[in-house]
């Protein structure tokens, strides 16, 4: 026993080095891709610790940004006023059209007797962390369970879909963006209603997969969420078809999609949090509310 202890003491550094290396490899091999595996409490503490300090770092940055933005606004006030007046003149005739479309929409919904309100709660949050690397694309938000955030919440900006919340701690949420390799979003092409899956490829473009070769897809077509598979509400903009690659073999064409969101410039986001009655949690519930004549 003493001999063993002396041996351990003598080779302490080597043992620690080998043990940490082995442990790292074991963790990598033991946990399946996509399954985090670490205890939730440990991840909560890690996210909270990093997120809270990052929120503090963001305070002076936000002040600086606000000040710079105000300064630029003051400079362009006259010009902006003229531009907005012109835009208002152009938009005024569209007002009546919007009212008409809204009324038509209302009538059609009543006709179908179909509830499209999935009782989503909405929550604003600021991006405090960007832990993206060449191999992962994730964002850290300053809103967690305490603020009402929840796993699987859709994350949006005015330009379109950013991704979904994959983990929450008390004060932070981790968002898997559409660009990430592990991201899969059921989607459809708005013009033709062709259904597919938008997949991230760890690049700056997205791939629309499982689109049959006979589907009529054109460059410039808009791709939106399909609302199936219980992940995102229907009709959120994902991006625009940029390129279509047809191979000689196989059943599907490969469609490259340019995301509508500039992922390098996201500062604030809106979270759509699925409620207890939401179609996002269980899409089959939505089917039940359609009353057959």
């Amino acid at each position: 026993m003493d001999y063993f202890l002396v041996l351990v003491k003598e080779h302490r550094n080597v043992i620690i080095a080998v043990a940490t290396l082995l442990l790292s490899v074991l963790l990598l091999l033991a946990l399946r891709p996509g399954v985090r595996g670490t205890p939730e409490l440990v991840e909560d503490v890690a996210l909270d610790a990093v997120g809270n300090v990052q929120s503090l770092i963001q305070i002076p940055i936000t002040y600086y940004q606000d000040f710079a933005a105000r300064f630029v606004q003051w400079q362009n006030l006259d010009e902006e006023n003229r531009r907005l007046s012109q835009e208002l003149k152009l938009l005024r005739p569209l007002g009546a059209r919007v009212v008409e479309l809204e009324a038509e929409n209302h009538r059609l919904r009543q006709l179908l007797d179909m509830s499209l309100d999935p009782e989503l709660k909405s929550l604003g949050a600021r991006v405090v962390g960007d832990t993206s690397t060449a191999f992962a694309n994730v964002l850290l938000l300053n809103a967690g369970r305490n603020q009402g955030s929840a796993t699987n919440a859709s994350v949006l900006v005015p330009e379109g879909v950013v991704g979904r919340v994959v983990q929450t701690s008390n004060t932070t949420s981790l968002v898997l963006t559409l660009l990430d390799l592990n991201s899969r979003v059921p989607a459809l092409v708005q013009r033709t209603r062709a259904r597919g899956i938008v997949a991230g490829v760890n690049g700056q473009k997205l791939s629309l997969e499982y689109i049959g070769k006979d589907e009529d897809i054109r460059v410039g077509d808009q791709v939106i969420t399909s609302g199936i598979a219980g992940s995102f509400p229907k009709g959120l903009l994902i991006g625009t078809v940029q390129e279509i690659r047809e191979g000689d073999t196989g059943l599907f064409q490969r469609v490259i999609v340019q995301p509508s969101v500039d992922f390098d410039r996201i500062e604030e986001v809106r979270l759509l949090i699925p409620g207890p009655q939401s179609a996002i949690i269980d899409s089959s519930k939505n089917l039940n509310v359609i009353k057959r004549p």
Binding site: N13, L21, L23, V25, P33, E43, T131, T133, F135, V138
Partner: peptide, 30 residues
């Protein structure tokens, strides 16, 4: 600053990103 600190740092990085748990830990220990 030894392998244990590097391992913990890597594990922390893995937890706040979506990289497989153990990947940053392994690279930092190396």
């Amino acid at each position: 600053c030894g392998p244990i600190l590097a391992f913990v740092t890597g594990l922390f990085l893995d937890m706040i990103s979506t990289t497989p748990i153990g990947l940053n830990a392994l690279s930092k220990v190396v």
